[in-house]
Amino acid sequence: MNFTLKIWRQENAKAKGRFETYKVENISSDCSFLEMLDILNESLISNKIAHPVCFDNDCREGICGMCGLYINGRPHGNDDGVTTCQLHMRKFTDGETIWIEPWRAKAFPVIRDLVVDRTAYDKIIQAGGYVSVSTGGVPDANSILIAKDKADKAMDAAECIGCGACVAACKNASAMLFVSAKVSHLALLPQGKVEAANRVQKMVEKMDELGFGNCTNTYACEAECPKLIKRSNIARLNREWICARVGKEK
């Protein structure tokens, strides 16, 4: 297969970026999208055309959340429930022009080319996305009973890989799906319930502070989430928020 690639190139965070056009040829349809970019980079180096395109990637099996490209108008490209590294070239048509852009959000500034800074997510987690337990001195694991359906729901939310596709997809660059997944995961479990009110407030405040947009319930996040995290988590976040605020003392 042959493709024309339009790739966003940007030297560094401050530089002005632009789209560059590259061609790749004889790509196997079994090739993954990132492997196609590897091939492009090899040829850019070998033919001394340009510095290879920088893009984040790590596990290449869809779990680390490191990769993330905005491909032809969709985060992680034209397939559902996959990360960019799990996207294969057979999903494209031969001769297609592929536009590749970095995640775009104020809270995710571009570092270089297609690499963005997602530490905003870590800051949200640091604001309270955990159970404040230190090592040791905890009760026996089976002393906390958790109903299977609750545990399953918590697990559904906990599957979030923090890739940022929800922010990238959202027309408002809102991080609500990410925040709601973490809030839900912990609020559904008795261990997390204890600090739930405090947690949801701190995480939402941090999210606002970092410059993410607001959720307008468009659900592009849900449509593009590689782990199929549900919008019901956002509703749960809203509920948690209301309960926390209603019960809050001055």
């Binding site: 955990y130 159970v131 337990v133 090592t135 040791g136 905890v138 009760p139 026996d140 694991a141 906390i144 958790i146 109903a147 299977k148 545990a151 399953d152 918590a154 697990m155 906990a158 995961h185 912990l186 479990l189 261990q191 997390g192």
Partner: peptide, 13 residues
Amino acid sequence: IDQCVAQGVPFAR
């Protein structure tokens, strides 16, 4: 296991 459960790791039940 105790530690992880206390942290909210959603082990299968």
